[in-house]
């Protein structure tokens, strides 16, 4: 009798202790995260202004703004997206619509994309440097950086688009063929429009990933902070600007805070938009 009461008390205590531990872990994580956000906001807002976004950087970025850096970032993103999207989406359509799921070709492509997704970004940087900058002779340029990022984007864009295409109900395909539509027509008029939100979500996530990337651009797109003249000119991406200001420029903390705030807000906007598109899809699958 005494034992039973004692056991029950112990068990209650254990419940209580575990609950306390879990709550304190959650409070800790939230506190650190809110600390980080408040820090970013406080440090960034004091330096952020319209001029900061529209002026060219001066004095190694200590003064002036980030206009040329935003332009370079945009150009790198454009190169990456414009080259990666056609390849990725064509691959996704092929994998989802034209190739049997267990076929040799499909398996090989899917496996190589899976491996590609696991490659760390610094290794993409090494490859980009060896292939685009040196072998193809593009040098440190926006084009090299963009193409390196395009390689990084391939797996994300393909897997999200393939998932979106596979999520289209099979009745669409059956109905289309019952109506005598060709496969291409069914694809263009029925399946692609139905999968468009998922593909858009994947595209936005890919853009977010590219925007956040630093390591792959370190020795592919270069460091120059001036306004780029052409795609073959070196251009500094926003994430790299934050890195350079905080590591190599004494007294660069304030503009670095402001740039970090700009970068995080851009990413936040892109991610929220992506989640809106992906509503109902497996969010966790898209996120990781």
């Amino acid at each position: 009798m005494y034992d039973a009461v004692c056991n029950r008390g112990l068990r209650k205590l254990r419940e209580y202790v575990v609950q306390c531990l879990i709550y304190s872990a959650v409070v800790l994580v939230s506190a650190v995260f809110i600390w980080l956000l408040i820090d970013l906001l406080r440090g960034g807002l004091s330096h952020l202004s319209w001029e900061f976004v529209t002026e060219l950087p001066r004095d190694a970025g200590r003064a002036g703004g980030i206009a040329s850096i935003l332009i370079s970032t945009l150009l790198i993103l454009l190169v990456a997206v414009l080259t990666a999207v056609p390849v990725a989406w064509m691959t996704a359509i092929l994998l989802a619509e034209f190739v049997a799921i267990g076929s040799w070709f499909g398996k090989t492509v899917r496996f190589s994309l899976y491996v590609l997704a696991g490659v760390p970004s610094i290794v993409f940087g090494l490859f980009g440097n060896a292939f685009f900058c040196v072998y193809l002779g593009l040098g440190f340029s926006i084009l090299s950086g963009g193409l390196t990022l395009a390689c990084m984007l391939l797996p994300i864009l393909t897997s999200t688009a393939e998932a979106g295409l596979r999520a289209v109900s099979h009745t669409y395909r059956l109905a289309a063929s019952a109506l005598g539509l060709s496969r291409a027509a069914a694809l263009l008029h029925l399946i692609l429009p139905a999968a468009a939100p998922a593909m858009a979500a994947g595209l936005l996530l890919g853009i977010g990933r590219a925007l956040a990337e630093t390591a792959a651009l370190l020795f592919t797109s270069g460091y120059a902070e001036r306004m780029p003249d052409s795609l073959l000119d070196s251009g500094r991406a926003l994430a790299l600007h934050i890195f350079d200001l905080s590591m190599n420029v004494p007294g660069g903390d304030e503009p670095a805070y402001a740039s970090a705030l700009v970068l995080v807000s851009l990413l936040l906007g892109i991610n929220i938009l992506a989640m809106k598109f992906a509503y109902g899809l497996q969010r966790s699958k898209l996120m990781l």
Partner: peptide, 13 residues
């Protein structure tokens, strides 16, 4: 969604 360079910057400062 926070990029690694921002984590690094926050860690540094």
């Amino acid at each position: 969604g926070i990029p690694s360079v921002v984590f690094g910057f926050w860690g540094l400062t």
